[in-house]
Write a protein that binds this DNA or RNA. Structure first.
Lengths: 335, 335
DNA sequence: TTGTATGCGTTATCAA
DNA sequence: TTGATAACGCATACAA
């Protein structure tokens, strides 16, 4: 006879007794009310309210083999893009009767991430969303063997586990380089956070600049997560080496803001002497003075698409395996 | 014979068979390895790895009546204070073998919140953290009847459900008013988001200003969540009514930043003509130019304390029922 | 429309 | 140190 904490837990059996019906009828009132006569249902609901019954979803999930829960793994939610994305993802799934179990990886190493995913899968989610591609092999294997829809977001790559919704970060870097090149720039710099995807953007930018014969003053890697302060410090170091006109790409709007603030402190005119492009289209890029150019991605669309795909898969419908999310440069006063 | 999705799920029985032991022995290897002979344990671990076994935590939780999961409910994580708090909370609990199930309420109404909490409690968390006090009665009742540690954070009030860790937001408002009064101000304004706690801060500020006979130019309520843009707009409206020297308190650093940017656009000197104090000690308050005065709270300490209290309670130890979290004004160039 | 029997995958308990 | 057994609370499948 198992025995854990001193329970006075109300179960479906208590409710059934109180309502004078079988437990299965209570279950129906909760899950498929259309199958129950209204008079019976009313009695049952009354008993549920009376007793403060909260169905045990572990028991229900074990029995039905459906947890009605979707796991989501993102690096952070301090980043407005992810905050938005998760907001929409959660709302869509909630509307469909699913709970979202959100986990943040921060800047976890691969083995900690594997452990996290292992724990999550132990709860038997009906689907899972993970950020990025190219996870460590143990993580990949767990995910693909879980037998549930797996949506990788916010990146692109050749071998998605199941479904991939994102964009190519190197392409972003290239596009920004081309944007600057088209405006006649020939002196460049790029600050990136020490983050997989930020580095991809840097790679794309640097390569495109090189292929156009541009002069690259700086391609710093700053500690992740990116901060305003990091942008200021990197800018402080760059100031003495600035050309008469330099174009700077930052892997995040926070860094870009820091770079602008610091440049202005040194009397460097933005955009005349220093053109700046950020990434993320955070509120500050539009609300700052001067507002600054940035790269925008429909993060909320990623959240909506991810939820829709998971729901479709759970309904047994076929879905796309790959959604390319567009990004675009929003030109503002910073150049 | 129940049957859900077409499962080829590996269970503890498969592992046991592969290792030539009883299921219970496998369970022990996972949960209490010190009770198993090393040779046996090695064989079992081998089988686990071989089969890619991921223990079903719903089954384990149902049987043991412990989910090893803690629920956390916060309004947002876009707010750095909550991001930090949740980060520490999660890390502490993870180290103790608990998973955190994070939910965001955004700016949900009371009934949606009750539904959320109901769903959460259905997973039978071993403890729960919720933001704020004074939830709707149904929510309060569910929480207190759940029979688990309940920690309310980030606020203060007379009747905590179980444990309360936070501070009095009205006291924050009063303190900021006193800070300005001590610097000789007699003209004041306050921008607050339409959020319970922000309004408390506003109330404290306004009342203290009134009791000192100060002149209150403005006490706007702006839509939640607070944004830079809202700060700019509120400031734009205030500019024509500014006295020769006015002190502004904003319910968030984001708003304060917006107010400063807008004021500067209008050629209003900060702090000479307009003194500004924000709330939250976000990075931008220190990294902006000029850096601005704000109110800081040890948010990470709240996360640590909340985790520690829940763990202590689960270990059957008595704990404090109320922790007052200190806050303090960080004086910077904005006045 | 409602009820009965059974098993989901694990662990507490007791026995060996 | 290991194993057998009986729940945990619910929903599937089938019967009435």
């Amino acid at each position: 006879m198992p025995h854990g904490r001193p329970l006075r837990a109300v179960t479906i059996a208590h409710v059934a007794r109180a309502a004078g019906v079988a437990p299965m009828t209570v279950s129906r009132v909760i899950n498929t009310p259309e199958q129950v006569a209204e008079a019976t249902a009313a009695r049952v609901r009354e008993a549920i309210a009376q007793l403060g019954y909260v169905p045990n979803l572990m028991a229900g999930g074990l029995s039905s083999r459906r947890s009605r829960m979707i796991a989501a793994v993102v690096p952070t939610i301090a980043h407005p893009m992810f905050a938005m994305l998760i907001d929409r993802f959660t709302a869509s799934l909630r509307a469909a009767g699913y709970q979202v179990m959100l986990s943040l990886t921060g800047y976890m190493d691969a083995s900690a991430e594997a452990e996290l995913v292992h724990g999550l899968l132990g709860r038997r989610p009906d689907g899972i969303l993970v950020t990025g591609v190219g996870h460590a092999p143990p993580t990949q294997q767990m995910l693909s063997e879980a037998g549930i829809p797996v949506v990788e977001i916010f990146d692109a790559g050749p071998n998605p586990i199941d479904v991939l919704i994102g964009f190519d970060h190197e392409a972003v870097g290239r596009r920004v380089a081309e944007y600057f090149l088209a405006r006649g720039h020939d002196s460049f710099a790029m600050f990136a956070a020490a983050d997989q995807r930020a580095r991809s953007r840097q790679r794309g930018f640097v390569e495109r600049v090189a292929s156009a014969g541009g002069r690259l003053l700086d391609a710093s890697i700053l500690p992740a997560p990116s901060t305003i302060t990091a942008g200021r410090e990197a800018m402080r170091a760059l100031v003495p080496r600035l050309d008469r006109r330099t174009a700077l790409f930052c892997s995040s709007d926070l860094m870009a803001f820091g770079a602008i603030v610091e440049a202005q402190q040194h009397g460097i005119a933005v955009p005349e002497r220093l053109a700046v492009c950020g990434f993320g289209d955070f509120e500050i890029s539009a609300a700052n003075e001067p507002p600054f150019t940035t790269v925008t991605v429909e993060a909320s669309q990623i959240g909506l698409d991810a939820a829709a795909i998971i729901l479709a898969r759970l309904a047994g419908e076929p879905t796309q395996r790959r959604i390319e999310v567009p990004f675009r440069i929003v030109e503002r006063a910073s150049g």
